[in-house]
Every structure is written in C-alpha cells, then in structure tokens.
C-alpha cells in the first residue's frame, strides 16, 4: 500500500482551474519529484497533500486513511506524520522566538512533557541537521539563510514524521548553501527512512533527489515515471523541452 495516494485532485479558484485531475502515489521511503514552471499547480498540490486547502474534487489519503473532507480536529494526529518545509526560511520562522522554542513548539503542542525533555530533544534535532547547542538561545535573525532552513527542517522533524513535503526548499538559498541542504535531505531520508514529496522548478535537482518524477504544466500531469524514464527517455514534448532548456555547463 502506498504511504500517500492522491486521486484525481482538482482545484478551482473561481473560474480558474489551477490543478486538473492529478493522480499519483508515493511509496514509503521513496521520493516523488513534482517538477513544473510557474503556474503549473505544484504548490497548490503540496497544500492539498498537507490538508492546508481542500481540493474542489478528488482526494488525498495517507497510510490508507482519507484526509480529504476530514474535520481539523481529526486531522491533527495525521499532521504529525506529514510535515512541510517551505521555500522561504525567513518567512517560516517566528522572529520573536528562540531556536529552542521554535524547534520544540510542535512537541509542546502535540506531546506536552517537561522542559528538560524538550531541551534534550532540541539538542538532538539540531545535531541531526548539522547545528549544535549554541543555536538554542538565539533568534532567527542571527542565522544565515542556510542555517535558517536547517532550523526549519529540525522543526519539521520534531514529531518524527514519516513524510516531508518539501516545496522549493533550496531555491531561496545561495548555490553552495543549497548544496549543503540537498545533501542534508539525502542523509536525513536515509537515516530516518523518510518519504518525500519534493517540489521544484529544476529538472536536474528533481533528478538528483527523486525515485519517481511527475511533470506538471498548467495544472495538468504531463508525464510521470521513474527518474530514468523521465530523464533519459521522456515521451512528451514538454518534458523534452524542459530538459533541453535547462542550461548545462559548457566546457568547450
């Protein structure tokens, strides 16, 4: 049974259909890369998968249970198991909270427990994303963009989720910092057996991180397959165009 199943997802905003009949499954431990340009509907799909917005029609189920149409109160236990990481690490962190409180807030909300236990857990989480205890008493503005994205990821991991929805997690970062975060995501997936929905506009990045790839355009699924099928033998013209338009380093 797949961990996540999206069936015929459709989202309308007024007259505009931003996601049109998109279906996919993600199996445990795998990464599905959603790749598309602006207006392809990829971020809207992420929000429907997270239960942050309701589809106009179609459904999402997680571990066999439908999360579509479920009241917020019943969504809560599912929320712990599927966590988001968004593009902008500046916007996602509360500027008035210390890192200790940011990282452990999900624990306080979902599990309670003692302050001492939270501190211990925070220290463990920071280590897993390559930071140390010196970050605990500090505020978000004291960190670089890459460090902030690490703090976001630590927070996302606090409740030991099974799945992360990563929406352009490195596109706001400098090249060398982005590489560190990509490597971190690969390590975390291996260490914690995580399942990823990885969303990006970059075909090479999606190729690097994904088991399977879905290509989106104007809200529709253009083509879906294994990484090698999509990257080495794309069937659809749009996929071919997307790959051809990606600038490659010219060494001659």
């Amino acid at each position: 049974m797949p961990l996540l199943e999206a069936t015929r997802l459709t989202k309308d905003y007024g007259e505009v259909r931003v996601v049109d009949d998109v279906s996919f499954v993600i199996h445990r431990g795998e990464t599905l890369g959603l790749v598309g340009e602006s207006g392809s509907g990829k971020s809207t799909i992420a929000r429907m998968v997270l239960g942050l917005i309701e589809p106009s029609s179609g459904s999402v189920s997680f571990d066999g249970a439908s999360i579509t149409g479920m009241p917020q109160s019943r969504l809560r236990p599912l929320r712990r198991r599927i966590q988001p990481v968004f593009q902008d690490p500046y916007a996602a962190l509360n500027p008035r909270m210390r890192v200790l409180d940011i990282v452990t807030e999900p624990l306080v909300i979902h599990e309670g427990g003692s302050r001492a236990r939270h501190r211990l857990k925070a220290s463990e989480l920071l280590r897993s994303v390559g930071l140390d205890d010196s970050a605990l008493p500090r505020y978000p503005h004291e960190f670089s963009g890459g460090q902030r994205q690490r703090i976001n990821i630590a927070r996302a991991l606090a409740l030991r989720p099974e799945m992360l929805v990563l929406d352009e997690p490195i596109s706001a970062l400098d090249v060398s910092v982005g590489a560190q975060v990509v490597n971190l995501l690969r390590d975390l997936q291996r260490d914690f057996q995580l399942t990823y929905l990885f969303i990006s506009h970059s075909m090479p990045l999606v190729r690097y991180l994904s088991t399977n790839i879905a290509v989106l355009r104007h809200g529709r699924l253009v083509e879906m397959g294994t990484r090698d099928e999509i990257c080495d033998a794309p069937r659809e013209l749009y996929t071919q165009t997307l790959i051809a338009a990606t600038p490659e380093l010219r060494l001659a």
Binding site: V175, S176, P204, R207, C231, I243, T246, E248
Partner: peptide, 12 residues
C-alpha cells in the same frame, strides 16, 4: 571548484 559541482546537472 565547489561552485561548479554544487549544482546538480542532468549528468551529475
């Protein structure tokens, strides 16, 4: 050197 290999390409 690190910049050159920090960004994946279709052949990384």
């Amino acid at each position: 050197r690190s910049l050159l290999h920090a960004v994946p390409t279709m052949t990384t």
